[in-house]
Design a protein around this nucleic acid. Sequence first.
DNA 1: TTATATTTTCAGAAATAATTGAAAGTTTAA
DNA 2: TTAAACTTTCAATTATTTCTGAAAATATAA
Lengths: 170, 170
Amino acid sequence: MYYFYPVKLEEAQQKFIQGWGQLGASWGINRTMAQIQAVLLLSPKPLCTDEIMEKLQISRGNANMNIRELVAWGVAYKSFIKGDRKEYYYSEKDMWELAKKVSRERKKRELEPLVKILGELQTIEGNNKEVKEMNKVVKSAGLMAKRAESILDLVMKLEEKVFFKWFRRK
Amino acid sequence: MYYFYPVKLEEAQQKFIQGWGQLGASWGINRTMAQIQAVLLLSPKPLCTDEIMEKLQISRGNANMNIRELVAWGVAYKSFIKGDRKEYYYSEKDMWELAKKVSRERKKRELEPLVKILGELQTIEGNNKEVKEMNKVVKSAGLMAKRAESILDLVMKLEEKVFFKWFRRK
DNA sequence: TTATATTTTCAGAAATAATTGAAAGTTTAA
DNA sequence: TTAAACTTTCAATTATTTCTGAAAATATAA
């Protein structure tokens, strides 16, 4: 029994890290970045760069860049231990907060550029089918994008207040 | 004036195609696949492979693979013209329907694998911090995933009619 | 100061993903 | 049948992204 837990834990952690990385990758987020997030999520205490490098077997440069990116997204934080010069990092652990921050970042990076482009494509004049189709598509895509933004805003505003209560009941 | 519209249209189309491709790319969807979708969206009539190859300057193999992928996702359809042996393709033009189909596909490809993995990581026994953190994370990630699925389902069930009315009020 | 610890950068290497194009496969018309 | 029209496949190539590791920059302690 003494021997059993640690092995099982390692295995489970590895599985979680892989799955989380895969999820990130299919969302257009660097796989390593997502894996680092997973490692931080699983750690009960802040970790330094070397510990992360060790855990994921990656280089210092890679670790550094991706950690910084996580901090820039607001899903990981720096932490200092007095008497120690190293920087330590820990993850946002509230999944709802995490989801909100990722949504916000993606909205900024993806939806907004499209909305900008659509705005630049003001109605074109003309009577042929192609022009009409163009105007129709630009208009409906713009509506859709706004709609998506509204839904996101709405969902994010609902906040724990509603969702927590709702989901705790299940 | 005769000369003016076509140039402007071409430009606008190109801009839209690029923007749409970019959106797709940042969503982990092949850029060319998204661009083909954009071309079909802009076209008032179904297009054959050669027309798409011509418009995007891509090879037959590339065009074929990505068109098929679009059809597999359910966001483009085949169409036949009698007396013509070629297959023609047209896009789903209802943006709301399009969004629903993409969501459905992504949910299947991304959320579900994570939920499966989390399910396999049943509670591990043990009293140390790492084990406790592991169990906590697995549980909250599972809850979050279910929550995301619920929100998606809910949003997708609300018909266009409801949203239209609702958003027009704002 | 100077030395040491730590973080950051970035050119080149490695890994991954997308694309081509020609050959093989399929369908249809005659 | 056979031939022509068209679609699909896939090995090889090309493009893109990610990663490494060592050097440069920065920060802290002595």
